[in-house]
Design a protein around this nucleic acid. Structure first.
Lengths: 225, 225
DNA sequence: GTCTATATCGGGATAGAC
DNA sequence: GTCTATCCCGATATAGAC
């Protein structure tokens, strides 16, 4: 994915440019920040910035990768905390919100291509697959360690579905203008509780026909065209 | 919303510019089309294009309004067709897909702001409220005429939820690269069937606690901050 | 009020010299 | 790998024709 840096100095320059960009995005937003500012702040020429990043948007990809790497240990310890599935999922989602908090104002601008799964920056794109799969894997771990019996046919899809649920919460959070985003907190708490309860119900023999129908829908939705 | 046109000639010019823009967007995509081209194709100066549309993106709003107006009679007759709720909803959604079909390739580019409900062009924004509410009203009509008993507490939210469901299908359709978008057709058919069945189940006394919980979630999600 | 013509600017992106 | 110069385009501004 990310090519190995040719030299240590090059990697250093790249990181300096990226950090300058993120800092500026944070303070004045993505659109308001110019490539000239980023280059100036990083102490390089515009051309140098373009040497490392194909476009201003490509820097977002850099941010995703940086964030993914920095969150990994936080997620690991969240999953290790005591509690069952609901608690572990709550902790996992909490990590994301806390990490993204300082970037909330401009993350929205970055996720504007989310609706188009073929756009490289979409969380659903081929280009972001590695990050997405690592993320889904953490939900799989939460399920394993959360000690909840899950019907076999559903089990394979569940980590992906939980990831999708989390993406929904993040979108809601980005748009949430209530003070301290309390609405998102409420929504997260209640929906998570409901979700875990539904998961318990899903195993009942009575639920089998419904579960099959839903699984069929999921399979249609997940086919690669 | 849209100010009354001062003269018939002005309205004609506006429409000529808008149609030129849509035609170009269709053929070469939104980003690839320049204001100079649009003005040239419409036979006006750039200044004239900016006289009618504050920005290139503002033309998208014009497209929404045009589409909404042109689809209204098609939707009315779709709702008048025989059949019960499932058939009417299917016909309603079918109208959208058919109308948007020639624009499928660039509609995606236009919906890129969908994720940000505060962006004027988002289908969830204040600016697109009039169009959205007219659309939701058509779902309300389908429910009225579809002869399905719906629990009272859910009834108020149902048109909006159906609209949201439809938006989900449209997003799926935009990303669907299967030939003729057969996957979307399959997904629509099966999910619609499931939806109507769930609606019938929702009225059972057994379902009351679950329904209340879901309604609570909906209400949290719908609060204006 | 409805436009044309033109000049100008800011910013993303690129070519090519070094 | 890095910089300088340049291009392109969206947007704005202005002056004036009708």
């Amino acid at each position: 994915m990310k090519p190995a840096p040719a030299t240590a100095k090059a990697e250093e320059t790249r990181l300096r440019i990226l950090r300058a960009a993120i800092e500026l995005f944070r303070n004045q937003g993505f659109d308001q920040t110019t490539m000239r500012e980023i280059a100036g702040e990083a102490g390089v020429a515009i051309g140098a910035a373009y040497y490392y990043f194909a476009s201003k948007e490509a820097m977002v990809m850099g941010f995703y990768e940086l964030a993914s790497g920095e969150m990994a240990p936080l997620i690991a310890s969240a999953l290790a905390a005591p509690g069952r599935l609901e608690a572990k999922l709550r902790a996992l989602i909490e990590v994301k919100f806390r990490y993204f908090e300082p970037n909330r104002a401009f993350l929205g601008a970055l996720l504007r291509h989310a609706a188009d799964p073929h756009h490289p920056l979409s969380p659903f794109s081929e280009e972001t697959r590695a990050i997405r799969e690592a993320d889904i894997a953490s939900f799989a771990r939460a399920l394993e360690e959360g000690e909840v019996r899950v019907p076999k046919d559903l089990a394979a899809h569940l980590p992906g579905l939980l990831w999708l649920y989390q993406m929904g919460l993040i979108f809601f959070w980005l748009a949430d203008r209530s003070p301290g985003q309390v609405r998102t907190a409420r929504l997260t708490g209640r929906s998570l509780h409901l979700l875990v309860n539904l998961l318990k119900l899903a195993g009942l023999p009575l639920m089998r026909p419904l579960r099959r129908t839903v699984l069929e829908l999921i399979e249609i939705a997940q086919q690669r065209a």
